[in-house]
Design a binder for these strands. Structure first.
Length: 515
RNA sequence: GACUCCGUAGCUCAGCUGGUUAGAGCACCUGACUUUUAAUCAGGGGGUCCUGGGUUCGAAUCCCAGCGGAGUCACCA
């Protein structure tokens, strides 16, 4: 056990705690229990106030955080920030203290309030000489005292930001502070939610059922990745946090639902970088009676709709590029893509020839790599860097894809596509394999790959095979990485910028002892 | 996991060929100011220079180790 030592308070924290005591001595509760009657929000007032309609703005009440203060003797300007943004408030001594007693202004407002304190104000809206829409405060109430100083970010007349709070470690560890002082960060997460809402609306409108499937799974099936392992005490069995939910959603299609989807967290016990977090959000959709050709059209409609609803346009700025999500998207079979960008025809090649091609491209190869893995390496190296505009790469080698149905006309391939945008895969879909005998053989092939040393080979799930043996309708399935889609639509190049609380190493403060 | 870079006040940063008492702007404190807006003016306080060792007469600065972060690569179909 670590012994708890009181933290050394900084000068500014001591001053704030002292102010807290002074406020209590004035008989004011710094953390009052009553609700505060908010009637307006900052952005709404700024957008809707008109000078000629000032009589309609005689009584507004809003609450938020005190972000700047400009005290000029018996009157002051300050800025209040609520969930919608900031608005200036004007606080005059004789307005908030109509009688002889001026403590509320001279002591509470001028001395004991600090930047970051949460207050409620009531008053009327007017426009200052300088043209700023402002609240003339008649009543001011402390709603919550802040004991730590916020980073002070200033924006000058040209809109240039000074002393921005940018340290990534601090921003991610103290996301609450990041959200308070960086409005563009708040906006990213609002967009993230809008993306999910838009997607859900799209699916619900088509009658597909949103479902939940197990996060704790006895067999980590449906994808190839290292899982997090845990233990259930009562059953005394190992359980795994899901790396995918595909096999459960297909069981529901077997059960008779025509369309099911789930938006939820997946967990993969692997490295972390700009595009990987150990837990991430995926959307998986399965629709009966459909194939992957239908699914491509559905995805085009879906992404065009989301882009339009979230950003107002199908064209989105991503880094240096403008990406247009307007349907339709280019469809390019994988082997043709390699032919186009690398001028190599791999269509008839066996494992030995593929290994030679990979080596000639300067790729690292080893004996555990089968045909599928080699083709994927060659594809990643030669084609992916060119895929900026939305592009469906179709018809993957069977070795790479144990859960997809064999191609209707191209031997050795499966009916699968991945959608690439800005060089990154954001969707993956199949005509799902519903032949239980074929499925068992594919799992067995995965077992052989595992024995050969492929750590990512898929695990056989006997109950899933039992479900298929009862019969699954022809079905198409789709997975979309929500985090990566959000990165695209918000023009962020790091997954940590679109996850509120990205995984980080635990903080260890000086003085803490190990164990 | 490998390599490179980074860690100084609440925030953003300077100082780093070793050398008095570690600096700036914002924030903070005291005072002035009833339409300011990066408010202004006068004065002032605030530091475990990430942690622990080492070299040295002397370390924020050099060396080693650790902790934390970032980037690149590897891994991640």
């Amino acid at each position: 056990m670590t012994e708890h030592r009181p933290r050394q308070l900084s000068e500014q924290e001591r001053i704030r705690r002292n102010n807290l005591q002074k406020i209590r001595q004035m008989g004011i509760d710094p953390y009052p229990p009553h609700q505060y009657p908010v009637t307006h929000h900052a952005a709404q007032i700024r957008a809707q106030f008109k000078d000629e309609e000032a009589e309609q703005w005689q009584e507004v009440s809003l609450a938020g955080r005190l972000m700047t203060r400009r005290i000029m003797g018996k009157a002051s300007f300050a800025e209040l920030q609520d969930s919608t943004g900031r608005i200036q408030i004007y606080v005059a001594r004789d307005e908030i203290c109509p009688g002889a007693q001026k403590d509320l202004y001279n002591l509470l407002f001028k001395k004991y309030l600090d930047l970051g304190d949460i207050i409620g104000v009531k008053g009327y809206v007017f426009r200052t000489r300088m043209g700023e829409v402002t609240i003339h405060v008649k009543e001011l109430k402390l709603l919550s005292k802040s004991l730590r100083p916020l980073p002070v970010v200033k924006v000058d007349a040209e809109g240039k930001v000074h002393d921005a709070f940018t340290d990534l470690e601090q921003r991610y560890r103290m996301r609450y502070v990041d959200l308070i002082v960086n409005p563009h960060v708040r906006d990213i997460f609002v967009k993230r939610t809008r993306i999910i809402q838009s997607m859900r609306r799209f699916f619900d409108a088509r009658g597909w059922l949103e479902v939940e499937t197990p996060v704790l799974q006895p067999i980590h099936g449906g994808a190839a990745a290292r899982p997090f392992k845990t233990h259930h005490n009562a059953l005394d069995i190992p359980l795994y946090l899901r790396i995918a939910n595909e096999l459960y959603l297909k069981r529901l299609i077997v059960g008779g639902y025509e369309g099911v989807y789930e938006i939820g967290k997946m967990f993969r016990n692997e490295g972390m970088d700009r595009t990987h977090n150990p837990e991430f959000t995926s959307m998986e959709l399965y629709v009966a009676w459909k194939d992957y050709l239908w699914m491509m059209e559905m995805v085009e409609q879906l992404l065009e709709t989301i882009a339009r609803e979230v950003t107002g346009d199908t064209r989105v700025q991503i880094g240096e590029q403008v990406v247009d999500f307007k349907a339709p998207y280019r469809r390019l079979p994988m082997f043709e893509a390699i032919q186009e960008y690398a001028s190599i025809d791999i269509s008839g090649m066996g494992e030995t020839a593929l290994r030679q091609v990979a080596e000639e491209l300067g790729l690292e190869v080893d004996d555990s790599m089968g045909k599928g893995k080699l083709i994927d390496e060659i594809f990643s190296e030669t084609v992916e860097p060119h895929l900026i505009q939305p592009t469906f790469i179709t018809d993957y080698p069977i070795e790479m894809t144990p859960l997809a149905k064999k191609h209707r006309s191209k031997p050795g391939l499966v009916e699968r596509f991945e959608l690439f945008v800005n060089r990154k895969e954001i969707a993956n879909a199949y005509t799902e394999l519903n032949d239980p005998i074929d499925q068992r053989q594919r799992f067995e092939e995965q077992l052989r790959l595992a024995q050969r040393g492929d750590e990512e080979a898929m695990v056989l799930d006997e109950d899933f095979l039992r479900a298929l043996e009862f019969g699954m309708p022809p079905t198409s399935g789709l997975g979309i990485g929500i985090d990566r889609l959000t990165m695209l639509l918000t023009n962020q190049d790091s997954i940590q910028e679109v996850i509120f609380f990205p995984q980080m190493k635990p903080e260890r403060k000086a003085g803490d002892e190990e164990e």
